[in-house]
């Protein structure tokens, strides 16, 4: 896939063939005002970044707004992307994460739900849940992690990014990222100790 510049289509009429172009070429064309190139990037990247934003914000509507703002930034400031410094996806994850963090800062702290950190008295709390509730249970434990540990697990485990990419997005070195991952997973294991023991006994 070459990086040869092509004449941009201002209105999206010149979209033929753009879907095969690399992100790097498309972003350069977006910087020149090519709406068709922008549309290809929307189609290509919305779902993964929306999923990431939803995991960070734990709120679908907020995540949609954050990703919308990120795409608006892409349209208005595509020339701030430096292809020599990062892959487009890494750069855009950062844009999305920054939008998410802005939203979290602006949001008033909510009062914690009653019994949010209470100990589940059941012998096998997870076994007693309906299948559909297990996901909520685990998700709640994830949401209770310190933020940076949660972002590290989200990027590496759920988004499937390499440790280098995840470290770059979080502005950390790889060692620091590994430390966050280790602490996060250790905390989760402790929080779900009974369920993990049950799983190991059954397997």
């Amino acid at each position: 896939m070459g990086d040869t510049p092509k004449k941009p289509g201002k209105t999206g009429r010149a979209s033929f063939g753009l879907s095969a172009e690399s992100d790097r070429v498309l972003v350069r064309q977006v910087a020149e005002g090519n709406e068709a190139a922008y549309a290809v990037l929307v189609t290509r990247h919305t779902n993964r970044h929306l999923a990431f934003a939803e995991r960070v914000l734990a709120d679908r509507a907020e995540a949609e707004d954050a990703v919308q703002e990120a795409f608006l930034k892409l349209w208005s400031r595509a020339n701030s992307f430096d292809p020599a410094a990062a892959k487009f996806t890494t750069w855009f994850y950062r844009v999305v994460l920054n939008q998410c963090l802005d939203r979290k800062r602006k949001k008033r702290p909510e009062s914690l739900p009653e019994g949010f950190d209470g100990v589940d008295e059941r012998e096998d709390p997870l076994g007693a849940y309906e299948e559909g509730e297990i996901a909520s249970y685990v998700k709640r434990k994830l949401d209770q992690l310190p933020e940076r540990q949660r972002y590290a697990i989200t990027l590496c485990y759920y988004e499937g990014l390499s440790n280098k990419e995840a470290a770059e997005i979080l502005g950390l070195g790889v060692k620091a990222l590994e430390s966050l991952l280790t602490r996060g997973r250790k905390r989760l294991k402790k929080a779900m100790n009974n369920q993990i023991r049950n799983y190991l006994d059954k397997s």
């Binding site: 779902n47 929306l50 995991r55 679908r60 995540a63 996901a135 685990v138 294991k189 190991l200 397997s203």
Partner: peptide, 18 residues
């Protein structure tokens, strides 16, 4: 032993596509 936590994490469904 390390797979047990992954098993729990995999129970969380992926967010819905746009």
């Amino acid at each position: 032993a390390g797979g047990a936590l992954d098993h729990m994490l995999d129970r969380v469904p992926a967010p819905q596509p746009a």
